[in-house]
């Protein structure tokens, strides 16, 4: 593609990104607002961060959310990786069509339906609702996303590498641990991060499956936000935005650098 941006191109890109980023920038700026009135600027201050740090309810919800997200991401990566191997490598087996339907359906299913039916199951088998039920529900959804991410990596994987390792005397487990896993590691890590952030962000499924002692951060945030804008929520949002941006930025820089290194190595090989 030609790399000349006309002024129309520049304008549409600028406007588009302003639309995406200005609302978040406003939230960040107003989180440092001294005034208690959220719409009036009263000078710079970090007092809302202090108040947030003393807000027990938010703190305990944040801890619950992190614990849940850690378990969900780990479970989803294990199950999702297995599902990806089945999709790409298992060949034909009885129920294969059903299996892929079960992987792809959650991707497009509205979360209200998944959440509702999940809850009906938990009620039906008399499972007490709490962290465990949230974990099960979110993991089920995350498996599909992880499986798709890892499967797309496996599709371009050269299976001769595994065969070579096996020929050289490695066991199946050693081959997986020493050859396959290091090669698909980037996909596994991005699958884990995807599941982690989906879990941290999930409101709908958690509202169906949570119990009295498992108020996650989005649930707490939602009930607070319903009563309007508050400076503390602005501060909390800013922290979320900062963490995500820093994490993404470092992940991106690492990818760019390894990409450059790969290109440099190829240059040497030529």
């Amino acid at each position: 593609m030609n790399t000349q941006m006309s002024w129309v191109n520049k304008l549409s890109v600028t406007l588009g990104f302003m639309f995406l980023y200005v609302p978040m920038v406003i939230v960040v700026i107003y989180s440092f607002n001294k005034s208690k009135l959220v719409t009036i600027w009263g000078g710079w201050s970090i007092k809302w961060y202090g108040e947030l740090a003393r807000n027990e309810a938010f703190l305990s919800s944040a801890i619950i959310s992190f614990k849940i997200a850690l378990v969900v991401a780990t479970l989803a990566v294990i199950l999702g990786a297995m599902a990806a191997f089945v999709l790409v490598r298992a060949g034909r087996f009885w129920g294969r069509t059903l299996f892929s339907a079960l992987i792809y359906a959650p991707l497009v299913m509205p979360p209200v339906i998944t959440g509702l039916s999940m809850l009906l199951l938990f009620i039906g088998v008399n499972l007490d609702r709490g962290m465990n039920t949230i974990i099960i529900a979110q993991t089920t959804l995350a498996i599909s996303f992880v499986a798709v991410v890892i499967a797309s990596r496996l599709l371009s994987y050269d299976q001769a590498l595994d065969e070579a390792a096996l020929d050289l005397g490695a066991t199946h487990f050693e081959t997986f641990r020493l050859v396959t896993l290091p090669i698909i590691a980037p996909a596994v890590i991005s699958g884990w991060l995807l599941a982690f952030s989906m879990s941290l962000d999930d409101l709908v499924i958690a509202s169906f499956t949570s119990g009295p002692n498992a108020t996650t951060l989005p649930l707490r945030l939602y009930s607070t936000v319903r009563s309007g804008v508050s400076p503390q929520i602005n501060a909390l949002s800013t922290i979320v935005i900062a963490i995500v941006s820093l994490g993404m930025l470092s992940a991106w820089l690492i990818t760019v650098r390894s990409h450059r290194r790969m290109q440099a190595n190829e240059g040497i090989a030529d």
């Binding site: 609302p23 406003i26 409101l203 939602y222 949002s237 995500v244």
Partner: peptide
């Protein structure tokens, strides 16, 4: 990757 809730929330104030 940024919280859906946070992004929707940002519009309430606008």
């Amino acid at each position: 990757w940024t919280s859906f809730l946070v992004r929707i929330y940002s519009w309430i104030g606008i």
